[in-house]
Design a protein around this nucleic acid. Structure first.
Length: 279
DNA sequence: ATGTCGCAAGCTTTGCGA
């Protein structure tokens, strides 16, 4: 099974590029971020014509996450338990929940599509929202893993964090910037501490997943590695390959992010490989 | 050039978010 994550930066602007890539790359399951639309606005027909069903969490023109899959999706869950909100308080005093998370199960593999808050600036309310969101994510992960021992589980998406200095083109540009601050990196490390592993790093140690549209960032290769697939041990044991599809930043009307892919061998875990042997 | 996108509102542009 081939699984990918991609911040598409508006699915309505990118639908042909995304579906063409899915078919061309033989992808079974795609987690999307920043679809920037509601269910009514989502280009369902283009996906079904390409052979994919879609489940999504889209509230308005901001954020929005989705899964497209050509294998059946089960147990669709919007958000995650304890996900914090942001913005102007509702009449009951709570903060509105944004469309930044959802989960599905495909072939027994549990996957969450995540669009972590950007943070805007160090010290901004959105920055503290980002840190709390990541803390709640670690807690929800801990709970899920405890309640589903042995089940493959992965969180994937745009984390808006560059964990290593080499994950940005010039760390000296990022003094006092979001995405590289110690609290953000500690929040990312906390996800690893509760049992999630950056599996793509094992196969692709260096390379960016995002290049700003501004300032010729892509031609200069001034990018950032901020999109990740973090898997439980039972997930990473299934992974046979991983790749970052840098070419998707080229050409006409690209997203500013590129797809990140893992290949899974679903027969690998149980030691009872029932695939036909070929002599 | 603080250099580009995408969105909504309701315009032929502005403000916001990234």
């Amino acid at each position: 099974m081939r699984v990918a994550t991609w911040n598409v930066n508006s699915i309505r602007s990118r639908v042909d590029r995304v579906t063409d890539w899915l078919v061309r790359e033989d992808v079974d399951v795609l987690a999307m971020q920043e679809i920037k639309c509601t269910a009514d606005q989502f280009p369902h027909l283009s996906f079904s014509a390409a052979g994919y069903e879609v489940e999504l969490n889209g509230l308005n023109q901001w954020n929005g996450v989705a899964f497209a899959s050509r294998l059946p999706m089960e147990d669709v869950e919007l958000g995650f338990p304890g996900v914090p909100g942001f913005g102007t308080a509702l009449p009951d005093g709570s903060l509105p929940t944004e469309a930044r998370a959802m989960g599905v199960t495909v072939e027994g593999v549990r996957m969450w599509s995540l669009y972590v808050p950007n943070g805007r600036e160090l010290g901004h309310p959105h920055y503290f929202y980002k840190l709390e969101w990541l803390e709640r994510l670690a807690e929800a992960t801990t709970t899920w893993l405890a309640e589903h021992p042995g089940r493959p589980f992965a969180v994937m998406g745009d984390f808006n964090i560059a964990p290593l200095d080499g994950d940005v083109w010039d760390i000296s540009v990022f003094l006092n910037s979001t995405h590289v601050s110690a609290p953000e990196r500690e929040a990312f490390a906390a996800l690893q501490a509760v049992g999630l592993h950056d599996i793509v790093r094992d196969f692709v140690p260096t390379g960016f997943t995002y290049w700003d549209y501004k300032r010729l960032r892509f031609p200069r290769n001034e990018g950032m590695r901020i999109d990740f697939i973090l898997g439980s041990k039972d997930f990473t044991d299934l992974v046979t390959a991983a790749s970052i599809h840098r070419n998707e930043r080229k050409g006409t009307a690209p997203s500013d992010h590129v797809p990140v892919v893992v290949d899974l061998d679903l027969d690998a875990a149980d030691g009872d490989d029932d695939r036909p042997m070929i002599f």
